[in-house]
């Protein structure tokens, strides 16, 4: 049986995840833009208060997870398109995953201790 360690065989799930995360991030962006227009970035205190709000923190958490999943699919597609040798490609995939999982932890930690 032929086994592939890399390839474009993950199908509909990643395609759908790319869209769902995109829609969520677009809505989040509009919410944050509206908050900014309402003065949420007028001072450090106002910005802190916005990001410390429970509901906004919940949305920001989802945004961070969405961003990392979305970036994973997109960056993986770039490696799949331009990097042919499987060993280099799988290394790049792993490095991308490590980076994104680390960024997610870092960003969540920033908003979670507010």
């Amino acid at each position: 049986m032929k086994r592939l360690v890399v390839g474009a065989h993950y199908g509909l799930m990643d395609w759908l995840a790319q869209r769902v995360t995109a829609i969520f991030m677009a809505v989040y962006t509009l919410i944050m833009f509206a908050a900014t227009l309402g003065g949420a970035a007028s001072s450090r205190e106002a910005w802190h208060a916005l990001m410390a709000n429970g509901f906004i923190r919940y949305l920001t958490f989802l945004f961070i997870i969405s961003l990392c999943y979305h970036a994973w699919v997109g960056v993986r597609d770039i490696w799949m398109d331009y990097v042919q040798p499987a060993a280099i490609r799988v290394t790049l995939h792993v490095l991308t995953l490590f980076a994104l999982v680390g960024y997610a932890g870092w960003a969540v930690q920033i908003i979670w201790r507010l």
């Binding site: 990001m51 970036a71 997109g74 770039i78 980076a99 920033i110 507010l114």
Partner: peptide, 25 residues
């Protein structure tokens, strides 16, 4: 679209760092 996505990905550490600085007390 691809170039902009790659650029945003590469600069994520800068953006998260700025988020951290903007919220630290």
């Amino acid at each position: 679209h691809r170039v902009s996505g790659a650029g945003l990905f590469l600069m994520l550490p800068l953006l998260i760092w700025l988020l951290q600085l903007s919220l630290a007390s």
